[in-house]
Amino acid sequence: MQQPSTDEHPVVQHAHPTAGVYLRVATILVILTVIEVGVFYVPAFHSILVPALLLLSAVKFTLVVMFYMHLKMDSRFFTFLFGGPLLLGLGMTMGLMFLFGAFALRR
């Protein structure tokens, strides 16, 4: 856990991005969504469907969290408050999938 400093701080508002940045992020998000749906429909991609879709959705997730939820500019501590439980949840999902045999090799 990061060591928070203890001196008295007035509550400061971190600078937020401009509308232009927001619009650009939105454009990327839409393009990625179109690619996702495209990948889903093109048979040639079926062998890499799962990793490709997971990657695309992770990128979208990160973009929204970094820019729209301002984690890129805001205090690192908020990233910890969000990222810690997020990783815990991810670990739990992986653990449960393993325990229920989702990763078992097909014989």
Binding site: Q3, P4, S5, T6, D7, E8, F77
Partner: peptide, 12 residues
């Protein structure tokens, strides 16, 4: 605990 500590009350 994180935000209402008295001045000088570092986490440690």
């Amino acid at each position: 605990i994180l935000n209402l500590r008295a001045p000088g009350m570092k986490m440690m």
